[in-house]
């Protein structure tokens, strides 16, 4: 069900939500968090779709705030989506213009779930310091997505300079399964230190930088990112060791082959993660990610990048 509420206020939207719940139980109980999405009009539908997918694991209230012109006069158009149009969540799309955009925090305030964590997500460009943003400052978790930004690598470096506990980036969530494979790979005999690391893949894909940063910070060895034209996401990770390298190779974006000297090649399916899968993982934990902090702040400056 989609309800349009042109030229309205968020208090009115909230009243309508309560009435909806009274009337039909249309809004299920047990929402665990409020997800505030701050994005451009062009990203509204993809963001809502990903959030709906994620809501199957994390029932939430999704509030999308999309600017409808900063110069125009103050006006708010709202849309409520519940039931089949909203997955296991309830979605409120707010199209705000003019001075309303200056105070997004008080704009969404009446709609925040009581006593539940707030997560804010910028699906494309994000403020230089997410924690200084009015909504970002209220949130327990701030999700950026440097991979799709205009200049991904630069954005990631900027975020590194302004990191505050609770910040996180979807490029990091896209690394998780790779990290699990790598952690398991060095856990087998012979137990040898890794002397150098190389990560290859798509130009401008920040998951490469974060993965290399994690490896360099943890293994205390030099790490290099090599950008391969035409590659898709991460295509290869090489861990150099005295007895020979461990190589994880994913040329087609689907199957990883793990090879190391003296052992048969082992293969496993590792498809490129979709946006909603990354978002689901991001919502699974709401406390600050200290490993991400270490990687972003300490590891990233040590990574050597080769174009």
């Amino acid at each position: 069900m989609i309800i349009d509420m042109p030229d309205t206020t968020t208090n009115a939207v909230n009243k309508r939500l309560v009435r909806l719940r009274d009337e039909g139980g249309a809004v299920a109980l047990g929402r665990v968090l409020t997800l505030v999405v701050l994005c451009d009009e062009r990203d509204v539908e993809t963001a809502v779709e990903a959030a709906n997918d994620a809501s199957r694991e994390h029932p939430c209230r999704v509030i999308v705030v999309a600017p409808a012109g900063a110069d125009a006069e103050a006006r708010l158009d709202a849309q409520i989506r519940v039931g089949g149009d909203a997955g296991a969540s309830e979605v409120i799309v707010l199209r705000a213009s003019g001075p309303l955009l200056v105070r997004t925090d008080t704009l969404v305030m009446p709609l925040l779930l009581p006593d539940a964590p707030i997560v804010v997500w910028w699906p494309r460009e994000a403020p230089d310091a997410p924690s200084k943003d009015p909504v970002g400052a209220m949130a327990t978790r701030r999700i950026t997505d440097s991979k799709v930004a205009q200049d991904p690598v630069k954005m990631l470096r900027t975020l590194g300079g302004t990191y505050a506990p609770g910040d996180t980036d979807l490029a990091w969530a896209r690394d998780t399964l790779w990290r699990a494979l790598l952690a398991a790979a060095v856990e087998q005999p012979p137990y040898e230190p890794v002397t150098a690391v190389r990560v290859e893949g798509e130009a401008g894909h920040t998951s490469l930088d974060l993965l290399a940063a994690w490896l360099t910070a943890r293994l205390r060895c030099p790490a290099k990112v090599v950008r391969v034209p035409g590659a898709e996401a991460i295509t290869k990770v090489v861990l150099e060791r005295k007895s020979g390298p461990i190589v994880l190779d994913r040329p087609d974006g689907r199957i990883v082959t793990i090879s190391q000297p003296g052992k048969p090649d082992r293969r496993i399916a590792l498809p490129i993660r979709s946006l909603s899968e990354a978002l689901v993982e991001e919502l699974r934990r709401l406390d600050p990610d200290e490993i991400y902090e270490e990687v972003l702040v300490k590891g990233l400056p040590q990574v050597e990048s080769v174009a």
Partner: peptide
């Protein structure tokens, strides 16, 4: 920089 030790 000495690489981190890895053991079982």
């Amino acid at each position: 920089m000495r690489p981190a030790k890895i053991t079982a």
